[in-house]
């Protein structure tokens, strides 16, 4: 098991997480949050937990993103933009 790979994946995850919180576009933020989950599933695979990796890849990064995007598409027409987010 390569420590360097885990560190790279972890740094990418943290960067994606911060990006998800500070991106202006909500749909881009949702995709960034999905990337956090996808990278987490790779880490689970490296941690010898293939069951968890499968679940995280299928649920965390696929279905959660879809549910978020469906919710976003139903929340169109916000009166004012968020000035800070």
């Amino acid at each position: 098991m390569n420590i360097a790979i885990v560190i790279i994946l972890g740094v990418l995850m943290l960067a994606a997480a911060v990006t998800a919180l500070y991106l202006k576009s909500l749909s881009a933020a949702v995709i960034a949050a999905g990337a956090v989950s996808l990278l987490a599933s790779v880490i689970y695979l490296l941690l010898a937990a293939p069951d968890v990796a499968m679940t995280e890849a299928a649920i965390g990064s696929a279905l959660t993103t879809v549910v978020f995007l469906y919710a976003l598409s139903r929340m169109r027409g916000t009166k004012k933009e968020d000035p800070r987010d």
Binding site: L47, E56, A71
Partner: peptide, 29 residues
Amino acid sequence: RRNLIKMIIGFSIMDTGTHLIIVGLGYRK
């Protein structure tokens, strides 16, 4: 964050972090 969607994204990131801690504690070299 003040947008509800952003708050929920924060919650799901928290979720992922908790899972990572639990799985990591079960790993052996």
